[in-house]
């Protein structure tokens, strides 16, 4: 169970980067989570934008509040050179594709590859198939998304920024995963936590922790 709360000094910061092809709904996803709203006339993101929201995880013992500090990046290929400065040191990365675009899934795969090669091995990666409200236009099946997530050992969600499906669940579960893996910890410097838990890519996500959910 999660609830929103204002930012406080004891909030645990968690840097999250949102990556993916242009127009897959990265900004809409972030805005849906942060403002609980969908803006139909959302304009293209230039470079990157920053948003944050604190969420209390009252089921945790003791209850904790995570401040998600979200870097929403531009999708155009030429901005890719800027991406490392956003995913470097990130606790989590959302790699977003559009379920109505098979091309966007291929681009998501390339982002996953880049994160594997260059990001902190502890960074928790979530594969997100957005626009699941557009079922009639679907080009990427749930199974395809799940298969990729399983192969790459990622968390997986299908979401709709438009109607809010799975958006809160995604972030809540991401927060819990960050805590359970020690990527973030209350009262402990994250970098030292991460350095204690370095694992090679591929061995970082126990199968038992994988989340393959779609409530669409």
């Amino acid at each position: 169970m999660a609830s929103a709360s204002p930012t406080r000094a004891k909030d645990i910061p968690a840097k999250i980067v949102v990556l993916g092809e242009s127009a897959v709904g990265k900004s809409s996803l972030a805005l849906r989570f942060v403002r609980r709203d969908f803006i139909p006339n959302q304009e293209a993101t230039i470079g990157a934008s920053f948003l944050s929201r604190s969420v209390s995880l009252v089921d945790e013992s003791p209850p904790v509040t995570i401040k998600f500090e979200i870097w929403d990046t531009a999708g155009q290929e030429r901005y890719r050179a800027l991406a490392p400065m956003y995913y470097r040191g990130a606790a989590g990365a959302l790699v977003v594709y559009d379920i109505t675009s098979a091309d966007s899934l291929r681009k998501a795969e390339s982002w996953i590859g880049e994160l594997r090669r260059n990001a902190d091995p502890q960074t928790v990666v979530v594969l997100v198939g957005n626009k699941c409200d557009l079922e009639s236009m679907r080009q990427v099946s749930i199974q395809q998304g799940q298969d990729l997530a399983e192969k790459e050992e990622l968390l997986f969600y299908e979401t709709s920024a438009k109607d809010g499906t799975n958006v809160d669940a995604l972030f809540t579960n991401l927060g819990k995963t960050l805590l359970s893996r020690g990527v973030i910890a209350s009262g402990v410097d994250r970098r030292s936590t991460m350095s204690r838990n370095l694992q090679p890519p591929g061995s970082r996500t126990p199968k038992s922790e994988q989340q393959k959910r779609c409530d669409c």
Partner: peptide, 23 residues
């Protein structure tokens, strides 16, 4: 400087305004 915080303003000649991007 490494974060390029001014990128959206510089490359759009300040037409890309935060308040307008996220009303």
């Amino acid at each position: 400087p490494g974060t390029h915080f001014a990128l959206p303003w510089v490359i759009t000649w300040f037409t890309h305004h935060l308040a307008e991007s996220h009303p």
